[in-house]
Design a protein around this nucleic acid. Structure first.
Length: 301
DNA sequence: ATCCAGGAACTGT
DNA sequence: ACAGTTCATGGA
């Protein structure tokens, strides 16, 4: 991926089929989001790079992504990691030509592919965050899931305040490995969720699970390895594979949001059944995650 | 009150 | 393998 280093900022040349504003719509879907802030088409996020907190301000100007550093401009080795994070966050390494070709031939996806053209899978590069955020969202309504995340982040994450706004970094597994189930219970996590999350923190501290080890695995093997983790079922594994590992074939087919989007898009009386979704999705082969993501996006219109 | 939320583990067959 | 049950809380 091409990017240019300037004294005060960095420029990233995004791939084809990318619209920053479309991604901002998705990022702005919850008012309770604490891990980034959108203000006047600027996207702010606090990153932890080599033990240093770096606030980045991201904007698009003439098709180029500019990354500014409002507080302190980091050195070059840190800038490389900032760029890597942003490229992964917006799935810059994927070629979406195949997806749009497929979607153009698909009755259901055609309209959304045109409407949200340029939307890329907004990912969660950090594996601990991807896994535990998915677990927080299991079997509860989304607003409450965001509330849990907010409490979790504000209790155990690091923060920095700049010009009156506070920016947060997701808690590290190192920190959460020391937390007790009872502590998370006080934040209104269920006992199960507290156990799952702390359990994952511990196996990440031990090095048993790392993104490095998992990212080279092939689709099915990755799915199997994720499913071995307590608290991670088929839905969570699929969610993490699409949001953290950029697996385009990943398909959380049992997802309630997906069902609601399909019901709405197709004008159905009831939510579709799994076997019906399988039929609809036969053409999506290889791009199920993007199909799902665009359907999720359709819920925020 | 009753049902449903971006499910998963556990239990019994 | 598969279905039914339990977990727990907020919102409609």
């Amino acid at each position: 991926m091409k990017w240019v280093n300037h004294e005060s900022h960095v420029e990233i040349y995004p791939p084809k089929e990318f619209k920053f504003t479309e991604c901002l719509v998705f990022l702005g879907r919850s008012q309770e989001e604490v891990l980034h802030r959108i203000k006047d088409h600027y996207l702010y996020k606090l990153l932890l790079i080599q033990e240093e907190m770096i606030l980045v301000k991201i904007l698009e100007a003439e098709g180029i992504i500019k990354v500014e550093f409002p507080i302190v401009a980091p050195n070059n080795s840190k800038r490389i990691q900032v760029v890597n994070y942003i490229e992964e966050w917006f799935d810059f390494h994927s070629d979406l030509e195949g997806f749009y070709q497929m979607a153009n031939e698909d009755q259901l996806l055609k309209r959304m592919a045109e409407k949200y053209y340029g939307l890329r899978m907004v990912g969660i590069p950090d594996l601990f965050e991807a896994l535990t955020w998915a677990i927080m969202g299991q079997q509860i309504n989304l607003p409450f899931a965001y509330l849990l995340k907010k409490r979790f982040v504000e209790s155990y994450g690091n923060s920095l305040t700049f010009e009156g706004e506070t920016y947060w970094i997701y808690p590290t597994y190192k920190e959460i490995a020391k937390v007790r189930v009872e502590d998370l219970r006080n934040l209104q996590f269920t006992t199960r969720k507290a156990e799952y999350i702390i359990g994952i923190a511990k196996i990440m501290v031990s090095g048993e699970i790392t993104k490095e080890k998992l990212k080279h695995l092939e689709y099915h093997e990755l799915h199997n390895q994720l499913m071995k983790i307590r608290g991670v079922g088929a839905w969570t594994a699929a969610y993490v594979m699409m949001k953290c590992f950029h697996q385009h074939s990943s398909f959380p087919i049992a997802d309630v949001g997906l069902h609601n989007a399909l019901k709405l898009q197709l004008g159905l009386e009831n939510k579709p059944r799994i076997h019906e979704i399988k039929v609809m999705a036969t053409n999506w082969e290889g791009w199920q995650s993007y199909a799902t993501f665009y359907l999720w996006r359709s819920l925020y219109d």
